[in-house]
Nucleic acid binder design. Structure first.
Lengths: 206, 206
DNA sequence: ACCTTAATCTTGACGCTGGAAAGAGGCCAA
DNA sequence: TTGGCCTCTTTCCAGCGTCAAGATTAAGGT
């Protein structure tokens, strides 16, 4: 056996080990290169062991997606807190947290927002994505003051679309393919600033 | 043999047949469910036949991505043409074409803008994505009048990010999960209008 | 302390995949 | 007609996800 003799027959916390190795593997190999057997190998366990913790590969991926959303929401909230009390600044902060998470976990991020994710859990991630929206909706409402529900909805759409679109395009290379990450941050902040300004202005026209 | 006797030993135009069946298969099964053997089956050909036209599965996917970008650019240009001469309206038109293509080819669209695509061609799609950006950049320049290169760049980022982010979030379900497609179109147009307004205003401040 | 039960992990098998190698079939130019 | 070349088929390999069956250990009641 290649497996070290020091390891017990029972792993101890295989579920967590699989989540950890799975997450690394996902970033390394991409969605298509992700393999349950390689996950098991890295957790130093036989190829069929994961079945007792995740009924299928999709369930493991779903768990990764679920945790990704939790982290994303936490990153956004933390960055908004750091941004102070001004609604526009806090909106930018949410965007910074959003983009930072996406940049640091790009494959996972794309999986979270891909139709693969929709296929594999349908409901589970919906709640998680809803938390992202409500974080944005609350801040947009703050920035807008009193405004109709429709305006709030549309500005939330708009704010989300701006930050999501920008970072997605950066990750794919469409925006600033060969630019320094320093320059990219500046461009991202500029996009977020334009977004926040548009939101604020739509609350107090002209 | 299950293969019909009427088919000749030589297919005639297998490459195109594979592209066609591959494209349908991609939309049906998603990136992870895409299979070279199933493509071959649908083209009524043995599983190893594709190798003579595409050295690997990734090359077939790369070809699908390449053609996708061509269609995307064409759809944007057509819609902008329909929108008339007003820069703001044309910007919205580009967005409408963009979103319409994405909605009609959602899996392909997500593949085009995923890191899988980056992995599998690196260069090939870059030129194609560049065509999308230049379409936008030209229209932004028109809307801005005379403005610094930096402003033009940032407004192009912003415009692209808005349309890309909105349709991506719709496809994943983050925006308007259970809304009618009619309502969704209205929300999309609202986001595009906010974007176009922001671009135009940044050209002639206040 | 012991024995039962359930949980955890391993082994082995199945049908599927992508890819390589080798041979068969048909087109075309000499 | 014949030879060469391209296209396609067949066969084989290792790796994949998943299932079934057996081995090993932990936990808990007596």
């Amino acid at each position: 056996m290649s497996r070290s003799k020091t390891r017990a027959y029972h792993h101890g916390d295989l579920r967590e080990a699989l989540v950890a190795s799975g997450r690394k593997l996902l970033e390394e190999k991409g969605v298509r290169g992700f393999t349950l057997r390689e996950c098991a190998r890295r957790a130093d366990v036989s190829h069929a062991a994961p079945a007792h913790h995740f009924a299928s590969m999709d369930e493991l991926l779903a768990e990764l997606v679920r945790r990704g959303f939790e982290e994303l929401v936490a990153a956004m909230a933390a960055e908004a807190g750091r941004a102070g009390a001004e609604p526009a600044a806090r909106l930018v902060g949410l965007g910074v947290g959003y983009m930072a998470f996406a940049a640091a976990n790009s494959v996972l991020f794309q999986l979270m927002y891909s139709q693969e994710a929709v296929r594999l859990e349908a409901k589970a991630a919906d709640g998680a994505a809803e938390a992202v929206r409500s974080l944005l909706a609350d801040e947009v409402e703050e920035a807008l003051g009193h405004a109709s529900g429709e305006v709030r909805q549309r500005m939330t759409d708009f704010a989300w679309a701006t930050m999501h679109g920008f970072i997605t395009l950066v990750l794919e290379g469409g925006i600033g393919g060969r630019d320094s990450s320093r320059a990219l941050k500046t461009r991202g902040l500029a996009a977020l600033a334009a977004m926040a300004e548009t939101v604020v202005r739509s609350g107090s026209p002209r």
